[in-house]
Design a protein around this nucleic acid. Structure first.
Length: 681
DNA sequence: GAGCACTGC
């Protein structure tokens, strides 16, 4: 074994930190016979037939766009072809980015197996909290696109790489789009030797080619491995997509040959309703087993969808759009697609995020249909009419994230990389100017940008860009060190808030006990101080006893472990910025909780709300006046009295505008902390 | 009075 530093932690805790355990060898310890079998399998992949064509395109063009369906082998084979052709000689490496961490780790493991090397040596990966790569030894490196953007901070020309392959570019996440734009800029400015490979689903190829320039790019299509999928439409629009979905599933079960069913629904509520309706309908004869699948489902329950159905039974999985790309259920022969998806969209008028249910794109519908043809010819039942699908009701592509989400994190990262003019930046697709303006105003309000020049403030904005946090939370953290002497609590607070979900679990049947236990942690100052109490309690418990401690207190151990890791990573960042040890140890524990509250208000002031005078339960935003309600997960939901003024971490409009991560504040602080934002009245 | 699509540094 070489001296490669395998699986080293990045969080400064001095121990291996890739405790996720999501990397497993596909082939185990392959003997010589195993290698031969693997080579044979490699040659059977559709990508192999295009090997020379791909290498020629990369040789002769700055950018190659590779189009291929899932399973064609592009993600595992192309980096190996490039490696075999010598692109990783001369000390350079080949990078392959993925939108998701698990995919990066799994692909690296698979390619390491195929090449017969140990993961973390010639083949490695690097994602948040888990770095199994070696600066000297690693020749093929899988990363998340966010990680590669971070690498640009230290190495703006990505001089460590000869080729960067951006996989799953059709994802059109902010990170993917931003990375593509950066790569083009790097190529044009200073590195005409850098090769870019963009790997995409069919329909987007021309957009990427247009972006990189017709003359400098080539498209290579890899014919797919998918089987034909027979598409059925409704003759007339359905009244109710939920009952139509359940009916379609029941009819398939009665009339069609054996084979599992995957049914797409927009959200958790629909999914749970569908599961219970099928259970009632099936009458417990066990011949049709219904399972839920959505991202928020606990991992143990998620695993159930991967178990093959027992003999003589058929499995139906009701899933959100996670099952479109992130999660693959094997053995599906029938897909039922209601044609709807939930998407987050920022409403610029109120500044609130909305979760809207809307028709899928045509690309998504095709992607969903393809899930039925992975192992043999399948069928898809679309619960809308052919005419509707052909109409503009179903857009060609989904709206990319840069056109619908808050852009402050992207703007901050661009500024840190020296891209000053975000309006004229060469985007894959330009965001609406108002969305950009909103982000610039937010960052200026936090003090990250100079309000006049728009430049990153050297002693604040630059640090904010370094932190792996949303800008308002990053601002809380920096201010805790610089102004409020409560770094310890602020680290815990922002780590818990950046989880984005409540650590409290409510087990069915023990609801009352769980809610009662929650009171032990509840702080009258609100959800964030409550979350701090929880994380401190977790960290004060010896590691060996933590699982039991979490069970006893109805807490999600996985989330708290995650928060612990985030807090260690944040401490490492703060130390690197150069804050003194004493400043990082500062605490308001036991003395003055209001320091932490003020600190939170210093980053979240734009999310200030006041209890409505007429309706004593609801709130209104201090700026703008939008009505916001206390989310049922908040400690204030069941409280007898609610504070008059609060700041919240997030608000999402679903059936109502619900705020989460609420902290009581004194209104005086708002004008003190953000005089530019609030006028005194 | 009653609930969040999906990612990532």
């Amino acid at each position: 074994m070489s001296a490669a530093k395998r699986h080293r932690g990045q969080d400064g805790a001095g121990r291996a930190s890739d405790g996720d355990g999501f990397v497993r060898s596909y082939y185990g310890e392959a003997g010589p016979g195993g290698r031969a079998l693997m080579d044979e399998q490699r040659r059977r992949l559709p990508a192999f037939r295009h090997r020379l064509q791909l290498l020629y395109a990369v040789e002769t063009h700055a950018t190659t766009i590779v189009v291929g369906e899932p399973g064609c082998g592009k993600s595992t084979q192309l980096p190996q072809y490039l490696h075999e052709a010598g692109w990783a000689a001369a000390g350079k490496a080949i990078a392959c980015t993925q939108p998701r961490r698990v995919a990066a780790a799994m692909l690296a493991q698979r390619v390491a197996d195929e090449m017969g090397v140990e993961l973390g040596t010639a083949v490695g990966y690097s994602v948040r909290f888990s770095d199994a790569s070696d600066a000297q030894a690693t020749r093929i490196k899988y990363l998340t696109d966010g990680t590669l953007i971070r690498e640009c901070f230290a190495d703006p020309l990505l001089s460590a790489y000869s080729v960067v392959m951006v996989d799953e570019a059709q994802d059109r996440s902010i990170a993917t789009d931003m990375l593509l734009a950066l790569l083009k800029k790097i190529q044009r400015k200073r590195r005409n030797d850098l090769r870019v490979v963009v790997s995409s689903a069919t329909l987007d190829a021309e957009r990427f080619r247009a972006f990189f320039g017709e003359e400098d790019s080539a498209i290579v299509s890899i014919a797919g491995q998918l089987h034909p999928v027979d598409t059925h439409y409704l003759a007339a629009p359905c009244e109710n997509y939920l009952s139509a979905t359940v009916d379609a599933v029941a009819r398939i079960h009665e009339q069609e040959p054996p084979g599992d069913i995957l049914a797409f629904l927009p959200g958790k509520d629909d999914i749970l309703a569908a599961v219970s309706q099928i259970e009632e309908m099936a009458g417990g004869d066990g011949r049709l087993v219904a399972l839920p699948m959505y991202a928020g489902l606990p991992p143990a329950e998620q695993k159930a969808v991967f178990d093959p159905a027992a003999r003589g039974t058929r499995k139906v999985v009701f899933a959100t759009s996670v099952a479109e790309t992130s999660v693959t259920v094997d053995g599906v022969l029938y897909v039922v697609d209601c044609g709807l998806v939930k998407q987050r969209v920022l409403d610029l008028a109120t500044g609130l995020d909305h979760l809207v249910t809307q028709p899928t794109s045509k690309s998504s519908a095709r992607q969903r249909a393809g899930r039925a043809g992975r192992t043999q010819p399948g069928k898809v039942y679309r619960l809308y009419t052919r005419e509707a699908f052909d109409s503009q009701l179903f857009p060609q592509h989904s709206t990319p994230e840069v056109c619908r989400l808050p852009l402050a994190p992207m703007v901050l990262a661009c500024k840190a990389l020296g891209i000053d003019n975000l309006v004229r930046f060469d985007y894959v697709q330009p965001p609406p100017p108002a969305l950009l303006a909103h982000a610039l105003a937010e960052l200026a309000g936090l003090g990250a940008l100079d309000a006049q020049t728009g430049a990153l403030t050297p002693d604040f904005g630059l640090y904010l860009a370094e932190l792996p946090l949303d800008p308002p939370l990053g601002a809380c953290l920096l201010n805790s060190v610089r102004r409020f002497a409560c770094a310890r609590e602020a680290v815990a607070a922002v780590a818990m808030l950046s989880l984005g979900e409540s650590p409290f679990v409510v087990p069915g049947g023990k609801r009352a006990e769980a809610l009662e236990d929650r009171r032990d942690f509840a702080a009258q100052e609100g959800d964030v101080l409550t979350a701090v109490n929880v994380l401190v309690g977790y960290q004060d418990t010896p590691p060996r006893a933590r699982a039991q401690w979490c069970r006893a207190h109805y807490l999600d151990a996985r989330l708290l472990d995650q928060a612990s890791r985030i807090s260690r990573q944040l401490e490492a960042h703060l130390a690197r910025i150069g804050y003194s040890r004493d400043a990082l140890r500062s605490s308001c524990s036991g003395s003055d909780a209001s320091r932490l509250q003020r600190c939170l208000a210093s980053g979240l002031f734009a999310n200030a709300a006041r209890r409505d005078a007429a309706d004593g339960t609801r709130y209104r935003m201090v700026r703008g006046g939008s009505v916001v309600d206390v989310h049922p997960s908040s400690v204030y939901f069941s409280a007898e009295t609610r504070p008059e003024f609060v700041v919240f971490a997030t608000a999402m409009v679903t059936t109502r505008a619900y705020m989460q991560g609420i902290t009581a504040i004194d209104p005086k602080w708002l004008t003190e902390l953000a005089p530019h934002y609030f006028s005194v009245s």
